[in-house]
Simulated scan of single mutants.
Amino acid sequence: MIVRNQISIALAVLLMLSFGAFAPAVAQEKLVAPETNPPGDIPDNQVFVTYTSPDGFDLKVPEGWSRTVIDHGVRFFDKYDQIDATLGTASAAPTASSAKAHEITDLKTAAHAVKVTAVKDVKLAAGPAIRISYQSNSAPNPVTNKQIRLDHERFILFKNGKTVTLDLAAPAGADNVDQWQLISNSLQWR
């Protein structure tokens, strides 16, 4: 009977040890607040990395975004956020007038329900550019067929017969002003 009691006590002690009954008290871990970024907002603390294009330009893009090769360029994306950088040719630098005459027609043909809100000549770190602000519908989701409205900023830069078209897109209303400025001003010709 004594052996049985000693075994019972030993088992009880082992169970208590395994469930932490004799463990030192540990401070309660505090809950981490969930992110409150609306869909499409690039976080303010986002890390950016430099993408070196084989086509002769460098561009800072958000770290961790997916990348795929597209016709004449590259696309970076995360959910509905997207950065397209494509290379083209031109005999002269585009102007706001030439963009209104040609680029906008092409946009309306290629994209979904385009509404252009502004076309301006701007100055970027890489040189003069055309900025086209517009909205479009996203491509339909292949599973749900759902579309959302997107805001775009498209920049067209020219150098030595080449153009780089940089198109930044996010769900309408997303606050990416600072991040888009960082991305567009990071573009450098090589």
Rank of each mutant, 00 (worst) to 15 (best):
V13E: 11
A27R: 12
I156V: 14
A111Q: 09
I42R: 04
P54I: 07
Q6C: 07
K159G: 00
I132V: 15
P142Y: 02
K108Q: 10
A27C: 06
E29R: 12
Y51L: 06
F48D: 01
E63M: 12
A110R: 11
S18E: 08
A92W: 00
Q46D: 02
D81A: 14
A21T: 09
Y80P: 00
T89N: 13
V74S: 02
V164S: 03
V119M: 10
F158P: 00
M16L: 14
T117L: 11
S18H: 06
A33G: 04
V49C: 08
A118I: 03
T144Y: 10
S18G: 10
W65Y: 14
A33E: 12
P24Q: 13
D175R: 14
F57N: 04
F48V: 06
I183A: 09
Q181T: 05
I148W: 11
S66M: 14
T52I: 06
Q147V: 15
K108H: 03
D71Y: 08
A93E: 15
L17Q: 11
V114K: 09
A113F: 10
D106P: 01
F76Q: 02
I104Q: 04
A110Y: 03
D175T: 10
A92Q: 11
N160A: 10
V61L: 00
S184D: 05
A126Y: 05
K162A: 08
E29V: 13
Q179S: 12
G173Y: 01
K30V: 12
I104K: 04
A125W: 01
V164K: 04
F76D: 00
L182F: 10
V13D: 09
K79L: 14
D84T: 07
P24L: 10
H72C: 05
N176R: 03
L87I: 08
K30G: 11
T117A: 13
A113M: 12
S133T: 11
A33W: 05
I132F: 08
A92S: 13
V164L: 12
L150F: 01
A139Y: 07
E29Y: 02
I104M: 07
N141F: 04
L168P: 13
P54L: 08
W189D: 08
W189H: 11
S138D: 05
M16Q: 07
F19G: 09
A99M: 09
A12H: 08
D71P: 01
A27L: 13
Q188N: 13
T89A: 11
K115M: 13
V32I: 13
N185G: 01
Q82T: 14
W65V: 06
K100C: 04
E29M: 11
T86S: 10
Y134E: 02
H112M: 08
N45R: 01
L124F: 02
T68Y: 08
L59D: 05
E63T: 06
P43N: 01
